[in-house]
Design a protein around this nucleic acid. Sequence first.
DNA 1: CGGTATCCGCTTTGATACTG
DNA 2: CAGTATCAAAGCGGATACCG
Lengths: 111, 111
Amino acid sequence: MKKRTYSCGLDAAVDVVGGKWKALILWELHTGVRRFAELRRGIDGISEKMLIQQLREMETYGLVHREVHRQVPPKVEYSLTDFGRSLNEALIPLGDWGERHMSTIEAIPRD
Amino acid sequence: MKKRTYSCGLDAAVDVVGGKWKALILWELHTGVRRFAELRRGIDGISEKMLIQQLREMETYGLVHREVHRQVPPKVEYSLTDFGRSLNEALIPLGDWGERHMSTIEAIPRD
DNA sequence: CGGTATCCGCTTTGATACTG
DNA sequence: CAGTATCAAAGCGGATACCG
C-alpha cells in the first residue's frame, strides 16, 4: 500500500496483497476464524512482529476483522471480511498456477 | 524469487510475481511483442534500471523471451513465453478484482 | 537504442528482549 | 496469550553517469 493512484487493476491489487506475507495470511484465513497463535503456527517462518504488523495493515484495508475477547488468558480472533473473501477468491487461480508449477519454480536458479 | 521451498502454491506464485513491477510488465506484454523503449513508455514511472533488471529476472524464470536484432540502431524485442502467458492468465481475476475495487483501495488511509 | 555501473537512502524484515 | 519496543541487517528501488 504505497501508491495513491494506479495505472490498472492489477497494479492496485499487487499493491494491496504485495509483500512477503499478506497473501499467505489471507490464505490461512480462508478456512475460517483463527486465533493469533494459530496463525503463527500455520504460517511457516513468520515472526510475531511481522504477523501482527501485517494483520494490522490488513485490518485498516478492511480485509480482516479483529475480535478481542476480554478474558484471561487473552483471546483474539481474526477472520476475513467480505472484502477479504473477495480478494481471496481472486487469488485462487494464482494459487493454482503456483501449485501446478511449484517444482519448476523451485528449480529456477537463484543468482 | 527468494525462497527455495514453498508452503503452498500461492506462496510460490507470489514469490515469482512479487515486487513492484513484474505483474505490470507481464500485463504490458499480454498484447504481444514489445520493444524495450515501448515497455518503458507503457509502464508509468519505471526506470531503465528497474525495467531491465526485472526483465532479466523474468527471462531466467522462463516467463519472458528476449530477441536481439543485430542492427543499427539496436532493436530488442520482448515477448511472453507459454509459461509467462499461463501466469498472466492466472493473474486476470486479480486484475479484475483490483479494477472493481480501485476507488475503494485508493481511499484507504496510508500510515 | 538499449543497455551498464556505481552510489545511496528508505523501507522491509529479522533478532532479541520485555509486558499486560 | 497476544502482543510491544528497540536495534540492526538486508534488500529494493531511485539518481546519475557512462558505453557499444
